[in-house]
Amino acid sequence: MLERTHAPPAARPGALLLRERAEAALRDAAPALLAYAAVRLTGLLLLTVPAVATGRDVLGLLSRRWDAVWYTRIAEHGYGFEIATPDGVHSNLAFFPLLPALERVLAALTPFEAATSGLLAGWLASLAAAWGIYAVGARLRGPATGVVLAALWGAYPTGFVQSMAYTETLFTAFAAWSLYAVLTGRWPAAGALAVLAGLTRPTAAALVAAVVVAAGVALVRDWRAGIPPAVLLRLHRPMLLGLLLAPLGWLSYMLFVAARRGDLLAYFAVQDAWGNGFDGGRALAGFTAETLRSNTLAGLGLCAALALVFWLLRLCVRQRQPLPLLVYSFAVVAVSLAGSGYFGSRPRLMMPAFPLLLPAAVVVARQQPARAALICAVAAVASGVYGAVTLLGPGPP
Results as ranks from 00 to 15, higher is better:
Ala7Phe: 12
Ala10Asp: 09
Leu18Cys: 08
Arg21Ile: 10
Leu33His: 09
Ala35Ser: 11
Thr42Asp: 04
Leu59Ala: 11
Arg64Thr: 12
Tyr71Cys: 06
Tyr71Gly: 05
His77Trp: 00
Gly80Gln: 05
Pro86Trp: 04
Ala94Lys: 08
Ala94Thr: 10
Leu98Trp: 03
Leu99Gln: 09
Leu109Thr: 12
Ala115Arg: 03
Gly118Gln: 09
Gly118Arg: 07
Leu119Thr: 07
Leu127Ile: 07
Ala130Phe: 01
Arg139Leu: 15
Arg139Cys: 05
Leu140His: 01
Ala144Asp: 14
Thr145Val: 14
Val148Asp: 03
Tyr156Glu: 10
Gln162Lys: 00
Met164Phe: 06
Glu168Pro: 02
Phe174Leu: 01
Ala176Thr: 03
Trp177Asn: 04
Gly185Tyr: 01
Gly191Thr: 10
Val195Cys: 11
Ala197Asn: 06
Leu199Cys: 08
Leu199Lys: 06
Ala206Asp: 05
Val211Asp: 05
Val213Ile: 14
Ile227Leu: 15
Ile227Met: 13
Ala230Met: 05
Leu232Ile: 12
Leu235Trp: 01
Leu240Arg: 05
Gly242His: 01
Gly242Ser: 01
Leu244Ala: 15
Leu245Ser: 02
Gly249Pro: 00
Leu251Val: 15
Tyr253Phe: 15
Arg260Asn: 04
Leu265Glu: 06
Leu265Pro: 00
Tyr267Ala: 13
Gln271Leu: 15
Asp272Thr: 15
Asn276Gly: 13
Phe278Tyr: 13
Thr291Cys: 02
Asn295Gly: 04
Gln319Glu: 14
Leu325Trp: 13
Val332Asp: 04
Leu349Glu: 02
Pro355Gln: 03
Pro369Leu: 09
Ala372Leu: 03
Ala373Cys: 06
Ala373Ile: 09
Ile375Phe: 11
Tyr386Ser: 13
Tyr386Glu: 03
Gly395Asp: 00
Pro396Leu: 10
Pro396Ala: 12
